[in-house]
Each structure stands twice: as structure tokens, then as C-alpha cells.
């Protein structure tokens, strides 16, 4: 939320200053918004005639904006849903998807929490409400306080699909506006647990995650997410209306270049493996 507001203020200011030049609007995922801003900043330094406006609001918001034609590029931390593809078809919009970075979804715990490892099955139990006490996963005897995101978040949908096997979140799971709020809540709450991008994990620790009981626990970092051994990782996307051309094509190809991907890594995101980045470049 805070990010969105700051971005909007900066944007309004920027728009006021530079009315000329061509405009590209980028909107969507709160997970990607920081990277989008960084990319836009660097790109505008190189190309003084282009103005790029970046804002967040959630993947769903971005996709809705793309379908309504109010944004050029939609940033999303999840794929479009069937309903959304159908709606796009009705509106004559041809979504074109490019993955621009990777992200591992970290499981945040308070620094005082003794637990270091959780398996996917336990995580599912915790978030669906089957496991309610830390004692059941080898921790202290205290109720688990669940933190998560609102249902307009791509992370919420992704986590539900890949960790909860599409089951519902527990009713007691608290929905907070934005990953920053989740991280803050967990940092203040000894018995809290939360999820979100690893780039956000400041002031909290994250657990290693086991795919099942036999596999070894993996900590999310550049390497494990990039080579796919960390079990909860995902691609982050840019959606366009049709294959991007001209300036937009130049922008996405630059973001996929070694330089753009290096910026992603500096910001705490996981860069795409080199082959994948090269394969994504638009001819």
C-alpha cells in the first residue's frame, strides 16, 4: 500500500515535469513493483525521451487494467486465470506473456521461533487450519498465528494452488494489505508465520522447506530458486496486449538482458537462468 502511494506521488510529480516524450504504463503485482520501478528508473536514464509509469495494486488489478486497456504492460506474479483469458478474448485483447524474473516464496518466521525447517505437507496443514499449535511441528506450545495476503494478491493465489493444493485457507488466517505488512506483523509476533517474496524478508527469518519427508530441506536463495530445487518458486510475468513492438519491445528485451537481470538480482529477486532469459527475448 505504502509503495503504491509513494509511486503515485512520484509519478504525478514526474508527469507534471515531463509532459512530452512517449509514455509507457506498467501496472500490477505488488511483488514485482519494486523491480519494475528500478528497471524504469534505469531505462529512463538511458532513454530520456521515454516516460515509464509504474504502479502496484496486485496482479489481479494489473490484469484487469490490461483487459480494460488502461495499462501497456501488466506485471503479474501469477498466470492469468481461465476466466480472465475468456474475458480478454471477448474484449479483443491478446495477452502475450513473458517471464521476466523468478521469485521464491519464503516462509517467514519470527526470529525467536526455534523452527528452522517445514515440509510442504506441514505448511499445508498450518495454513488450512489442520495444524494450529507450534507444538505439532516441533515448536513451543502456543497457537500458530497465520498471516497472509488479501485474495487480490498473486502470491495468495499461487500459495493456495501450490502449497494448499487448492484447498481453502483457514478462516483464522489474517489477510494483510501487502507483503511489507506481512513481514512487519511476523517480525512483531513471536508466534506468527507468513509468506511472501524473499526480497522482502527483512527483520524476519525464513525457514528451509522440504518437498516431502524424504527430500532434504532447501533454503530459498538465488541458486536454489534458479535451479528449481526450492519447492515454492514461481516465474514473474509481464503481460502485453499482443507481441510487443517498438519501444515496449526494446524495454522488455533490455529487462531480459544481462544488465536488466543483474538489476533484478541486486533488488533481491532471482534472475532468470541465462538460457531462459535468452529464449524469452523478442525477435
Amino acid at each position: 500500500m505504502k509503495n503504491v502511494i509513494i509511486t503515485m506521488m512520484v509519478l504525478l510529480f514526474a508527469v507534471g515535469l515531463i509532459a512530452a516524450g512517449s509514455n509507457i504504463t506498467i501496472k500490477g503485482s505488488d511483488t514485482l513493483v519494486r523491480l519494475g520501478q528500478r528497471w524504469a528508473e534505469e531505462y529512463m536514464k538511458k532513454h530520456k525521451d521515454i516516460v515509464i509509469q509504474v504502479s502496484g495494486g496486485g496482479s489481479g488489478t494489473g490484469i484487469a487494467a490490461l483487459l480494460n486497456g488502461t495499462t501497456d504492460i501488466c506485471q503479474a506474479s501469477r498466470n492469468m486465470k481461465k476466466k480472465e483469458y475468456k474475458l480478454a478474448e471477448e474484449k479483443g485483447i491478446k495477452p502475450y506473456r513473458v517471464s521476466v524474473a523468478l521469485d521464491g516464496i519464503a516462509i517467514y518466521l519470527n526470529k525467536e521461533n526455534p523452527i528452522t525447517t517445514l515440509s510442504l505437507a506441514k505448511l499445508k496443514g498450518i495454513y488450512t487450519g489442520a495444524i494450529t499449535n507450534w507444538k505439532e511441528v516441533g515448536g513451543p506450545d502456543h497457537r500458530i498465528i497465520l498471516y497472509g495476503r488479501e485474495n487480490n494478491s498473486g502470491t495468495y493465489v499461487f500459495f493456495k494452488k501450490h502449497v494448499l493444493d487448492k484447498e481453502d485457507y483457514a478462516d483464522a488466517a489474517q489477510a494483510l494489505p501487502g507483503t511489507a505488512a506481512v513481514v512487519h506483523a511476523v517480525s512483531k509476533d513471536k508466534y506468527g508465520i507468513g509468506y511472501g517474496g524473499i526480497a522482502w524478508a527483512k527483520g524476519v527469518k525464513y525457514t528451509a522447506v522440504k518437498k516431502d519427508n524424504k527430500s532434504t530441506a532447501v533454503i530459498p536463495d538465488v541458486q536454489t530458486v534458479s535451479n528449481g530445487t526450492y519447492p515454492i518458486s514461481r516465474e514473474l510475468y509481464w503481460f502485453f496486449n499482443g507481441v510487443p513492438k517498438g519501444e515496449m519491445k526494446a524495454l522488455v528485451n533490455w529487462a531480459l538482458s544481462a544488465e536488466g537481470q543483474k538489476l533484478a538480482e541486486e533488488m533481491g529477486y532471482i534472475p532468470l537462468p541465462k538460457e531462459l532469459a535468452e529464449a524469452n527475448i523478442i525477435e
Binding site: 495494486g57 496486485g58 489481479g60 488489478t61 476466466k83 485474495n151 487480490n152 483464522a172 489477510a175 494489505p177
Partner: peptide
């Protein structure tokens, strides 16, 4: 914890199909 009508609209209307 609790959830109100107004917060529900604010949180969900942006995403809803």
C-alpha cells in the same frame, strides 16, 4: 481478528472478475 463489510469491498473489488 475480524473482517468488516467496508474492508472486504476495498480489498476485493480491485481483483474481482
Amino acid at each position: 481478528s475480524m473482517r468488516t463489510f467496508s474492508a472486504t469491498i476495498a480489498a476485493e473489488l480491485a481483483e474481482v472478475v
